[in-house]
Simulated scan of single mutants.
Amino acid sequence: MCSVNTDSLQEMIPITTEIFPGTSATCRKCGGTPVEVVLRKTDPYCRACFLTYVTHKFRSCIGKHKLVPVGAEVLVCTSGGLASSALLHLVHEGVTLTSLKKLRVQPAFLHVDERCASAFSRQGENAEQSSSSSFAGDAEYACRAVVQLGYPCYYTTLEAILSPVPIAPLLYKRGSSVEVLHQQSTSAVLQRHLQQLLTDCSSSTARESVVRVLLQRSLAVSCSRLGYTRLFAGHSATQVAVTILSDVAEGRGAHTAQHVNFRHVDSDSGVEVFRPLREVLEDELLHYLTINDIPYTRQKHTVRQPLWSIPCLLL
C-alpha cells in the first residue's frame, strides 16, 4: 500500500497567478510596461509585442504551409464582423509592407448578404424590417471599409445561389448603394425559395447547417464566377472549435477535416479555400481591433436563436 504520510502533505502553491491589466506586471516578451493585453489570464503583453504576436500567427499560418504562391490573386470574404474586419486589416498591413516580410498576394473582397435568412428568424413585420435594415447597414459598412482601402469589393446575396440562372456578384464602387445592388442580386421568388427551405428544416440546428452550407457554396461559386481560384475565409480558432464540436454532435465527424483544415478544395468548383486565422482566438482578434481602433459590426449570425444549438451555446 502507499506509505505517504498524509499529515506531512502541504498545499501546492500555483506557479502562475492571474494578472490584471493596469497592475505592475511587465510584458512577458520584452519586459517593458505598460501592459495593455492579458491573454489566458496569465500572459501579459505590451501593445507592440501583442500586435507582433497576432501578426506572426497570421503570417506564419500562411507561410509555413507554402500553399499560397507569390503574386496569387485571392478573393477574401468580408462580412464586417469581428474576424473579417481583423482579416481585412491584417491583409492590408501585409500587402502594404515594403520589407521582405510583405504579403505577396493580390486581394479582392466579397460580401454575401444574409438578410433574407435573418428575416426568417424574426417575428413580426417590424422585427423583419429592423433586421433587414440592420443587415443593410452591416453590408454597407463592410463594402465601404474595403473600398476605402483601395481594393475591389464584390456583393452578392445568399439566395442568389438558388437561382437556376447564374447571378454573378456585382462590383461595389465608391458612391454605390447596397440597396440597389441587393435588388439586382435577388428576387421575391428566390427569397421565398430560401425561406421555404428553412421552414422545411425540423430544428434550429438543421437550419443553421443549411445556412452554413449555402454560404460555403455561395462563396465558392462566386469565387469561381469572378475568375478566382483561391479564397481566404475568416475562420478563427474559436470558430474552428465550434465547428468541430457541432459536427461531431451532429454525427458528421467524417467531414470535419475539410471544415477546419488550413486548406481544402471545393469539390464542385475546384476553388481552394484557405483559413489564415485558424490559429488566432476570437479574444485575440477582439484585442487586436480594440488596440488599432478598428470598428466592426456585431451582427454575427442569421437564423440562430439563444440556446437552440451547440454553436449558440459556445459563442
Rank of each mutant, 00 (worst) to 15 (best):
S3F: 13
N5D: 13
D7Q: 13
S8A: 11
M12L: 12
I13Y: 03
I15A: 12
T16W: 14
I19N: 05
P21D: 11
T23M: 12
C27I: 13
C30W: 14
G32H: 09
V37G: 01
V38D: 01
L39Y: 03
K41N: 08
K41H: 10
T42D: 12
R47K: 13
R47P: 02
S60Y: 05
C61S: 07
K64W: 11
P69A: 08
G71V: 14
A72K: 03
V76D: 04
G80C: 03
T98K: 13
L103W: 10
Q106C: 05
D113M: 05
D113G: 01
R115K: 06
A117H: 03
A119C: 08
A119W: 10
R122C: 11
Q123P: 00
G124V: 10
E125K: 04
N126M: 12
A127R: 04
E128D: 02
S130D: 14
S132N: 15
A136H: 08
G137A: 04
E140F: 06
R144L: 14
Q148R: 12
L149E: 09
P152T: 12
Y155M: 05
A160Q: 01
S177N: 06
V178P: 00
V178A: 03
V180D: 07
L181Y: 07
Q183H: 08
A188R: 10
A188G: 01
R192M: 10
R192I: 13
Q195M: 11
Q195S: 02
D200L: 13
D200N: 08
S202Y: 09
S203C: 11
T205C: 02
S209F: 05
S209E: 12
R212D: 04
V213I: 15
V213G: 00
S222C: 09
S222N: 07
S224Y: 14
R225L: 15
L226Q: 08
L226P: 02
G227I: 15
R230I: 15
R230T: 15
R230K: 09
G234C: 05
S236D: 08
V240R: 11
A241N: 02
V242H: 04
V248P: 00
G251W: 07
G253C: 11
A254I: 14
H255S: 12
Q258R: 14
H259W: 14
V260E: 01
G270N: 05
V271L: 13
V273Y: 04
V280D: 09
V280S: 05
V280E: 04
L281T: 11
E282H: 02
E282D: 11
T290S: 10
T297M: 10
K300E: 11
P306E: 09
L307Q: 03
L314Y: 10
